[in-house]
């Protein structure tokens, strides 16, 4: 099945079995290995991407449902040279340790901050409730996201002034 979708702002095409997973498309023909396969059944969240702006588990989305849609994976947030504030804060504040959950955490956090620029710690915890981390105990991830939210608000204010 031929599927046309926008990935990280760029129009892309794949030709795959319709029930192949969006995750297979990303990590295979699209060459984007940021989203990881953890559990493969929607429990762990490390394959999370934004689909039309909403976080989903790429392991549960058949590529046959993706025609004409817009996907943002962790690669779409920033680059090694220009880390997004969320990425920089995860590195700086110890939110990333082994790194397996990090792409999904970043996507979940991105979805939150797009809707809520000043979340409480509880709102952050709710937003990442579908993302499992076995290293950090979550606290440093929550702190990293709160720092990123603060930095984004400050830079917005700076831009406005």
């Amino acid at each position: 099945m031929k599927v046309a979708l926008k990935v990280n702002g760029v129009q892309r095409h794949v030709d795959m079995a319709p029930l192949a997973r969006l995750l297979d498309a990303l990590r295979g023909p699209l060459g984007l290995t940021g989203a990881k396969e953890g559990c493969g059944e929607g429990e762990c969240g490390t394959c999370a991407v934004l689909l039309d702006g909403v976080p989903v588990n790429a392991c549960l989305v058949p590529i046959g449902q993706c025609d004409g849609r817009e996907v943002v994976s962790v690669e779409g947030l920033g680059s090694i040279e220009h880390l997004a504030p969320l990425q920089a804060c995860m590195a700086e504040h110890g939110g990333a340790q082994c790194g397996i959950c990090t792409p999904g955490m970043l996507i979940a956090a991105e979805a939150l901050l797009r809707r809520n620029s000043d979340p409480t710690a509880n709102e952050v915890r709710t937003a990442i409730a579908g993302n499992l981390c076995r290293c950090t105990g979550y606290e440093r991830i929550v702190q990293s996201i709160l720092h990123a939210a603060y930095d984004l608000r400050s830079s917005d204010k700076g831009a406005a002034e």
């Binding site: 588990n57 989305v61 709710t126 409730a129 579908g130």
Partner: peptide
């Protein structure tokens, strides 16, 4: 709806 799975499951 808040108690179903997590946000990514609620989205689907």
């Amino acid at each position: 709806t808040h108690d179903i799975g997590g946000p990514t499951i609620q989205a689907r």
